[in-house]
Design a binder for these strands. Structure first.
Lengths: 154, 154
DNA sequence: ATTAGTGCAAAGTATTTGCAAGAAA
DNA sequence: TTTCTTGCAAATACTTTGCACTAAT
């Protein structure tokens, strides 16, 4: 895989990576990449990215954002996630592609599920059904510990 | 939960259920329901349902299909699934809501993952993070055993 | 009769694309 | 300079909605 070293997430890694591929590192792409660096923990949606872009680099168009997201997805730089709220979300790729998420419906917090339990689950499932699984998705939606406390009854 | 008895899937269960709610059982809804009964195993997309409808009951409009799907979703009669192919898929609800899926990218076959392993995984995860998980999703995409055999190298 | 449901066409959303102009390399 | 990228606006694709009409109960 491309970015196993987790280094792509550094400031200039994308620049070098794109140049290596004969692609250009533009002002817009730089802005989008810094939006990712800033918003990463939130697994931002397209809108969230666009709104942040407006604040740091006005004038980046939706067309460019969509085209750039597609490009970066194709390159494996980012990964698209569908949390079922009608908006696609993104995170930086090149890490454990098998990890899952817990999403709090109240505060929007996203917890990443990683490690042996997830891996074991997939390994066992693949074996049991003889399936060669290339893309995996585990997502749980509900209330995180904090929101649950704040709202014992609905 | 509403249909734990798995009986909703019978021919006239929906009719009785809707009447109970003061809703009407129309020719169109009957057609859509029979599409579900016919296509259930495929976890059909909106288009697949619509195409089947055209063959058994011409004249059911997209508006009606969408409205009916939404109603049935709200009632818990069906469950929406996003397999990430750009189309929403549906299955009959009221069964184990926690089950996951393995989707073959080649032949489209869908295998349902159920049982103790899935349940244990979620129970353990919920405990570990103190999360109250209300909606769950597990999906794997890849090649099923048969397609894998037919195409040893890509 | 009453009220929910339907078809149609128009309106929304979200995303993609053609093309001329612009900016990296 | 050459080629990739951008912005704009138009086009697409999918889904929802307003309204007058129809059908189920």
């Amino acid at each position: 895989v491309l970015f196993e070293n987790k280094n792509l997430f550094q400031r200039d890694e994308l620049k070098h990576f794109l140049r290596q591929k004969g692609l250009k590192y533009t002002r817009q792409r730089e802005a989008i990449w810094s939006a990712f660096r800033y918003l990463e923990a939130h697994h931002p949606s397209t809108e969230e990215i666009f709104n942040y872009l407006k604040s740091i680099s006005p004038g980046v168009s939706w067309a460019t954002l969509y085209r750039t997201l597609r490009r970066m997805r194709e390159l494996g730089v980012i990964v698209e996630r569908d949390f079922g709220d009608g908006h696609l979300h993104y995170e930086v790729g090149g890490r454990d592609l098998a990890h899952g998420h817990l999403v709090c419906n109240r505060c929007g917090k996203v917890i990443e599920l990683e490690g042996r339990k997830v891996e074991d689950f997939w390994r066992g499932t693949a074996e049991k059904y003889g399936f060669e699984i290339s893309r995996k998705r585990i997502e749980g939606f509900g209330l995180c510990r904090e929101c649950e406390k704040k709202r014992p009854k609905d």
